[in-house]
């Protein structure tokens, strides 16, 4: 009877290249991001850069950063990028994609950037069917300028400019720009995702990848909304903010695909 060799399981036997299941993508610079603890901006940067790395397109993609908390996105994403004026990312991306149609192009924008000051640029880029990806972070607030009402702020939600809660009679209604854009023939892939649970992070990442694959097929405008958090301006701990997403944001901004090209 041969002896069964006994292997001792310890750190050294586990931490080996062949056993690696997750490491941060190389397309993300190894510098700490300036975002607040638990902020979804960081998560989305990370998973988008994972997608770029996995697709091997880091030399073939150009991004546009917004004005908002993610104004420094180009310090974290190790790809060619341009910084746009507040709200103008979709126009800048149009300029890039029109002269470099063979490159992947994306914008990364907050709700104020994409859905307030930049509404005209956003909607017309979508309507022209510009073949680039918008990653749209809906955190229901203006993060960078410390917590004013955003177009996406929920009914009754408190912000520094809606201190008694958002009242539609005064402040207008929360703006579902994603639903609006889904109506436009130029927008071909429109989906709403979140990154507040592990399962949702995985789904959001799949959606981002799908968007870039659609871009490769030259089908039209791709919009991936990510319902996200702003623990600092929501005055919550990161964990409380994830609960707020689940309980308050998602009933109003339900997750899922709004539009997918036929056969994809």
């Amino acid at each position: 009877m041969s002896e069964i060799p006994t292997i001792e399981i310890n750190k050294e036997t586990i931490i080996k290249p062949e056993n690696l299941v997750y490491k941060p993508p190389k397309t993300l610079f190894d510098t700490p991001m300036h975002y607040c603890p638990g902020c979804g901006h960081s998560t989305v940067h990370k998973i988008f850069m994972e997608v770029v790395e996995e697709m091997g397109i880091e030399n073939d993609i150009i991004g546009v950063a917004p004005v908002g908390c993610s104004v420094f996105a180009y310090y974290y994403m190790n790809v060619d990028m341009q910084e746009a004026a507040h709200g103008r990312a979709c126009a800048v991306a149009t300029g890039i994609k029109r002269v470099l149609p063979d490159k992947f192009v994306f914008t990364y924008q907050g709700d104020g950037d994409f859905a307030a000051i930049g509404t005209a640029e956003s909607i017309h880029a979508a309507n022209r069917g510009e073949n680039f990806l918008v990653i749209f972070i809906n955190n229901a607030v203006y993060g960078m300028t410390s917590g004013q009402m955003a177009p996406t702020t929920l009914y009754d939600m408190v912000s520094t400019t809606t201190p008694y809660g958002r009242d539609p009679k005064i402040h207008g209604h929360p703006f579902k720009i994603t639903d609006l854009i889904a109506q436009l023939p130029g927008a071909v892939y429109v989906t709403r995702q979140s990154v507040h649970t592990t399962a949702n992070v995985r789904k959001a990442k799949k959606a981002l990848r799908k968007a870039l694959e659609i871009q490769k097929l030259n089908l039209g405008f791709q919009l991936v909304e990510i319902v996200s958090n702003c623990p600092s301006n929501w005055r919550m701990t990161p964990l409380e903010s994830l609960k707020f997403i689940e309980e308050q944001m998602l009933p109003f901004y339900p997750l899922g695909d709004l539009k997918v090209p036929e056969g994809i």
């Binding site: 150009i62 546009v64 341009q82 746009a84 004026a85 103008r88 126009a91 800048v92 991306a93 149009t94 300029g95 890039i96 029109r98 002269v99 470099l100 005209a120 640029e121 017309h124």
Partner: peptide, 26 residues
């Protein structure tokens, strides 16, 4: 040449920014 009618002059000048940033003559 790419010739595009923008949605506004705001759109146009920012398209110029993007395309100029790619090293093109715009």
């Amino acid at each position: 040449m790419v010739v595009l009618q923008a949605e506004s002059e705001l759109g146009a000048i920012n398209m110029i920014y993007g395309a100029a940033g790619c090293g093109k003559r715009v």
